[in-house]
Design a protein around this nucleic acid. Structure first.
Length: 602
DNA sequence: GTAGGGTTAG
C-alpha cells in the first residue's frame, strides 16, 4: 500500500475547498463515482484490543493511549484506532477525533468505511460539513460505496448549518439514485432538520411520499412532526396526525402525549388536555415527570400557580419524582404573580428534597426579586452562585443588568457589564438591548452612543432594534436632530429602518408640532419603505393633527386612514371624546367619532 | 461505524 495515499486525497480536496469560495457538492461526488477502484483494501482482520477504551474519560487519556499506539511496531491495525476514535465520539470530542484521523492517515494506517463514517460524523458535528463531503468523495475513490452511516451525518450537518436547500437536494439525490437505503435513521434526520427549520408542512409532505413507497415511518418520526406542528401553532394538524397513528398501526408513546399536551396546554386548551390525559391512562401509557412538569408550567404561565401546586402534590402522591425543572416552573409561576416569597420558599426547600439548584433556578428568583425591587436579595443571590459552584450565564447577566438600570443603579450596572466580559461571557442581543435601554432611560445618551459605536466597530451583528432604542432615547431627551442624524447615517446598507424606527421619529415630530415632516415620513414609508406604515403610524399622525386643532384636515386624514384599513385606537378615541367635551356638538368631531370602528369603544 | 423525539429563565 502506498503510504500517505489517503492523506494526499484528503489534502488535495481540502485545498480545493479552501481555494474555491463555492463548489458543488454533487459535482464532487459524481467526480469520484468514476473512481470506484479498490485503491486501499483493508485486509487486516480485527484483533482483540487489550486497551480498555471505555476507561478513556478525556482528551488527555485518549492522546496518551494514542501516543503509545503509534510507537508500536508494527502499528496496531485499523480496528484499534477505530475504537479510540469511537470513544472520542462518545465523549463528543469531534475535533480531536478528526485531527487524530488525519494523523493516522498520514502514518499510512489503512482506513475502512467504518472509520470514514466516524470521521464524516466528526466533521459534521464540528460544523465542517464540507470536509465531511471531501471524506465522502475520498471514500468513493478508495472503493467504499457510501451508506446511510455516511449520509445521515452529512444531511444532519447541512441542516445544522442552515443549508436547508442543499440538504433537501442531497436527500432527493439519495432517493432518486438509490445512493443508500433510506432507513428510519436517514429519514429521521431529514424530518428533524425540516421541522427545526420551521418546515413542518414539507416534513408532512415527505412523510406522505415515503408512506406511498415501501418505507414505514414510526412513532419517532410522527412525534417529531406533531411537536413541530404544535410549536408552529398548527394544533389541529397535529391532532390529525395523532389521530391517524392507530389507523396506521403506529404506536403512540409517552412522548407523543407529552408533545401534544404541551401544545394544547400552551394555548389554554385545557378541556382537550384533560381528555388526552384520560385517554393516555386508558391506553396504559403512564404520564412521566415531563408530562406533569409540562402541565405545571402551562398552568403557571396562565397565572394559576396555586393550581399548578395542586398538580405537583398529585404528582408526588402518585409517586412521580419532580425534578429541578418542575420546581423551576413553579417558582417562575409564583414570580409571575409577584409572589416572590412563595418562590423563595420553594427554592429553599429544594436541597432538602435532594434537588440541586440550577443556574435557571437562580435566574428565575433573581428576576423575581428585581421585579419587586428587592435589589439586595437579588444581588446576594447573584453573588452566591459561584460559591455554590454555579456560573452565571448570559441570561443571569442580562437579568441583573436590566434590574440594576431599572432601579437607577447605573454605576453598578456598568461594573457588571465589564465583569461579564472579563469573565469571557459574550454579550448577546438582549445584553446590548438592556445596556442601550438602561443608558438611555437614565439619560446617559453619550454613553449609549459610544456603546453603539463600539458595537459597530466590533463588527458584531447589528440590529435595527439597537438604533430604535437610541433614537427613542434621543427623542425623549429632546434631541430630535441627533435622532434624525442617527437614522440618516445608519452604518450599513443591510441595516434598514423598520416601522418602529419611523414611528418613533414621527411621534416626536408630532409632539413638536412638525406635522409636515411627519406626513413626509409617512409618504416615504408608503412609497419606498420595505416596512409600510401600520395602524400605530396613522394613529400617531391623526392625533398630532387633532391636537393642532385642524379638525377639517383631521377629518380628511381619518378618511384616508380608514380607506387603508386602519381605525382609531383606544387613546385616539379618548382624545376625540375629550375634544368633544370641550367643543360640544361639534359636527366634524361627531362625524369622526361615528366613523370609528365599533370595537374602538370597547 | 453513526445514534434521531418531549418540560424551565432574560
Amino acid at each position: 500500500m502506498k503510504r500517505g495515499g489517503f492523506a494526499q486525497i484528503l489534502f488535495s480536496y481540502q485545498c480545493c475547498l479552501k481555494s474555491s469560495g463555492t463548489f458543488n457538492l454533487f459535482d464532487l461526488m459524481s467526480d469520484f463515482q468514476h473512481f470506484s477502484t479498490n485503491l486501499v483494501p483493508n485486509g487486516n482482520s480485527p484483533e482483540k484490543s487489550r486497551i480498555e477504551f471505555g476507561n478513556i474519560n478525556g482528551v488527555a487519556d485518549a492522546l496518551s493511549i494514542y501516543n503509545t499506539m503509534i510507537r508500536k511496531k508494527p502499528l496496531p491495525n485499523v480496528f484499534i484506532f477505530h475504537n479510540l476514535l469511537s470513544r472520542l465520539v462518545k465523549l463528543k470530542q469531534y475535533t480531536v477525533a478528526a485531527s487524530l484521523f488525519n494523523d493516522i492517515s498520514k502514518l499510512g494506517v489503512p482506513v475502512n468505511k467504518y472509520t470514514l463514517s466516524i470521521v464524516i460524523n466528526c466533521y459534521c458535528n464540528s460544523h465542517r460539513v464540507d470536509f465531511g463531503f471531501s471524506i465522502l468523495a475520498a471514500s468513493f475513490k478508495l472503493g467504499h460505496m457510501p451508506d446511510e452511516a455516511m449520509f445521515s451525518p452529512l444531511l444532519k450537518g447541512l441542516f445544522r448549518e442552515n443549508r436547508i436547500a442543499e440538504a433537501q437536494q442531497l436527500f432527493r439525490k439519495i432517493v432518486r439514485e438509490g445512493l443508500c437505503e433510506v432507513n428510519n435513521f436517514v429519514f429521521g434526520v431529514v424530518v428533524d432538520g425540516l421541522c427545526k427549520a420551521g418546515n413542518s408542512a414539507i416534513a408532512i409532505e415527505l412523510l406522505r411520499v415515503m408512506e406511498k413507497g415501501s418505507f414505514r415511518p414510526g412513532t419517532h418520526e410522527y412525534n417529531m412532526i406533531i411537536d413541530s406542528l404544535c410549536k408552529d401553532r398548527l394544533l389541529d394538524s397535529a391532532m390529525d396526525l395523532f389521530d391517524e397513528m392507530p389507523q396506521k398501526s403506529i404506536n403512540r408513546d409517552v412522548v407523543t402525549y407529552n408533545v401534544l399536551i404541551n401544545g394544547l396546554s400552551t394555548f389554554g386548551r385545557w378541556k382537550e388536555v384533560k381528555a388526552l390525559w384520560k385517554q393516555m391512562i386508558d391506553c396504559n401509557t403512564q404520564p412521566n415527570v415531563i408530562t406533569f412538569s409540562t402541565v405545571i408550567d402551562s398552568l403557571c404561565k396562565e397565572g394559576l400557580a396555586d393550581k399548578a401546586r395542586d398538580v405537583l402534590n398529585i404528582m408526588i402522591q402518585k409517586n412521580h419524582v419532580p425534578n429541578v425543572l418542575t420546581y423551576n416552573a413553579l417558582m417562575d409561576g409564583y414570580c409571575l404573580q409577584d409572589r416572590v416569597d412563595e418562590a423563595r420558599k420553594i427554592f429553599d426547600s429544594m436541597p432538602s428534597k435532594g434537588i440541586t439548584h440550577s443556574t435557571i433556578s437562580y435566574n428565575i428568583l433573581i428576576n423575581g426579586y428585581f421585579k419587586k425591587m428587592y435589589i439586595d436579595e437579588a444581588m446576594h443571590l447573584f453573588r452566591e452562585m459561584p460559591l455554590k459552584g454555579l456560573e452565571p450565564n448570559v441570561v443571569t447577566y442580562n437579568t441583573v443588568l436590566q434590574g440594576l438600570f431599572r432601579l437607577r443603579k447605573c454605576c453598578t450596572a456598568l461594573e457588571i457589564f465589564d465583569e461579564m466580559q472579563a469573565a469571557s461571557h459574550k454579550p448577546d442581543f438582549y445584553t446590548y438591548c438592556n445596556m442601550l435601554d438602561g443608558l438611555c432611560g437614565n439619560g446617559l445618551l453619550k454613553r449609549a452612543l459610544s456603546l453603539l459605536d463600539e458595537i459597530e466597530k466590533k463588527g458584531l451583528n447589528l440590529h435595527i432594534h439597537y438604533y430604535n432604542i437610541v433614537i427613542d432615547g434621543l427623542c425623549k431627551y429632546q434631541k430630535l436632530d441627533s435622532a434624525r442624524a442617527l437614522l440618516d447615517d445608519l452604518p450599513s446598507e443591510e441595516l434598514v429602518p423598520d416601522v418602529i424606527t419611523y414611528n418613533t421619529i414621527i411621534n416626536e415630530c408630532c409632539a413638536k408640532g412638525l406635522l409636515e415632516e411627519a406626513k413626509e415620513i409617512l409618504l416615504k414609508m408608503e412609497q419606498r419603505s420595505c416596512f409600510p406604515p401600520n395602524g400605530v403610524t396613522y394613529n400617531i399622525i391623526f392625533r398630532g393633527i387633532l391636537k393642532s386643532g385642524k379638525l377639517d384636515e383631521a377629518a380628511k386624514f381619518l378618511d384616508v386612514m380608514i380607506g387603508r384599513g386602519f381605525f382609531p385606537d383606544g387613546s385616539t378615541a379618548d382624545l376625540l371624546f375629550s375634544l368633544l367635551q370641550k367643543k360640544e356638538n361639534n359636527h366634524t368631531l361627531l362625524n369622526m367619532i361615528k366613523k370609528c370602528a365599533p370595537n374602538t369603544w370597547n
